[in-house]
């Protein structure tokens, strides 16, 4: 595939359709600037600022844009809140739609057939693959990203983090906890 992609790039460059330095800039952005650290800051802010949390759940696009931590945020971002009674999980069964701007590029497993096929009918089995067990009486809500709306899970704030500031809390927020295939880390892991 390496040779095939190189051939395509060469043809499209010689045709005048693309500029290889723009490709370099795109790659650099996804390798160094855009990633789950952005989502983690959003979640940590929601854990510490009740007004921001309300705004995030009401209109995540506007709330994240208001933080000013990324250049711009695209439209149609929706935040869904985990509670002791409800666990949310995000999938795209038809392709691999994912909230790139707040989580970066999706991991391989998110784009894989096992996840895309099973998340909607066996989410507890999928969670088991991640070593995660939910209480039997917790309801599970799976969001299939079948349009241009994109979802981010607001995980539960771990117990024992009272008084922590946003920066420290953000270190507990994992990518998987914002997809719904994991929980935020316990405070012992960063203390």
């Amino acid at each position: 595939m390496q040779l095939r992609v190189r051939a395509l790039e060469t043809v499209l460059t010689e045709k005048g359709y693309i500029d290889p330095s723009a490709l370099d800039a795109i790659i650099e952005a996804y390798e160094t600037k855009v990633g789950p650290h952005i989502g983690a800051r959003v979640i940590a802010k929601a854990w510490t600022d009740p007004a921001f949390k309300r705004a995030l759940l009401d209109n995540a696009t506007a709330a994240v844009r208001g933080l000013g931590i990324i250049n711009r945020v695209g439209d149609h971002l929706i935040a869904v809140e985990n509670t002791p009674n409800l666990h949310n999980m995000i999938v795209c069964t038809l392709c691999s739609c994912y909230p790139w701007e707040v989580l970066g590029l999706p991991p391989v497993w998110y784009k894989s057939a096992p996840y895309r096929s099973r998340a909607v009918n066996d989410p507890r089995g999928v969670l088991a693959d991640f070593g995660v067990t939910l209480p039997a009486d917790t309801n599970i809500r799976v969001w299939d990203s079948t349009a241009e709306t994109r979802f981010i899970v607001l995980p539960m704030r771990p117990a024992g983090t009272e008084g922590w500031d946003e920066e420290k809390l953000a270190r507990l927020v994992t990518r998987d906890s914002m997809i719904g295939t994991g929980f935020a880390k316990p405070p012992s892991e960063v203390a």
Binding site: D137, D144, A147
Partner: peptide, 10 residues
């Protein structure tokens, strides 16, 4: 799974 709900964007 009786605890499962699934949504799509329709």
């Amino acid at each position: 799974d009786p605890s499962l709900q699934v949504s799509i964007e329709a």
